[in-house]
Amino acid sequence: MKQITASGQTVEEAVQSALEQLNTTKDHVEVEIIDEGKKGLLGLFGAKRAIVKVSLTKDPIVEAEKYIKEVINNMNMKVDITTQVKGKHITFNLSGENIALLIGKRGQTLNALQYLVHLVLNKDKKAYYTVTLDAEGYRGRREETLETLALRMADKALRLNKKVALEPMPAYERKIIHSKLQNHNSVSTYSDGVEPHRHIVIKP
C-alpha cells in the first residue's frame, strides 16, 4: 500500500497537499492524523504544522478488474472489459475473440471465473459485493434458453403426469426457472439435492 506523510498549516491543508502528491481524491485514501498542529500566537510564535499520514486504499473493484485481465491474459486470450456498478452489484462485461472458450460448456468456465472474482472482490470483508461476469450477452441468451426449457419441461411433466428433474444448475439459473414457472397454474417447482448437485424438480 502506498502512503505518504504530509504537513500543512492546518489538517485540511496537509491532507490536500498529500492528495496532490498522490494524484488522487479523498474517496480513495485513509487519513491518519499524527499532529493536529497549533496556530500559535498571531500565527507566528509557537506555531506547529499539522502532520498527516495518508495512505492509498485499494479500490476492490479496480483490483478485481485487474485480476480478470491478468488471468485471461495468462490464458493467452485478449478481451475487453467494461464494468458496471449498481450499488453493491458489479457486472463485468467481457468481449473479444474466442469468447466461447472462456464461456465453456454451459458456462462452466465463466462461472468458475466469476466465483474466483467474487472471492477476490470480497477478500477484505469491508463491503459485500455480488458479481456477474458476462461474456458478450451470454447471460441474457442463457436466460432465454432456460425460460424456454422451463416451459417445455413443464409441458412434459403435465403430459407424463410425473415429476421431471432437471440437471444441476447454479443458484441464479435455478432462480430463473423458478420465477418463470411461479405463475404457471398446473405445475409447481422445488429444488432438490445438495450443492453443487442441487437441481430443480417440476411437479405437475
Binding site: 495468462n74 493467452n76 472462456l102 465453456g104 462461472n111 468458475a112 471465473l113 474466483l116
Partner: peptide
C-alpha cells in the same frame, strides 16, 4: 468448502489451450 475453490481453479486452468 467441499473443494469449491479448487474446482473453480481447475476449471479455469483446464479450459486454457
Amino acid at each position: 468448502k467441499n473443494g469449491r475453490i479448487a474446482k473453480a481453479i481447475r476449471t479455469v486452468v483446464y479450459a486454457t489451450k
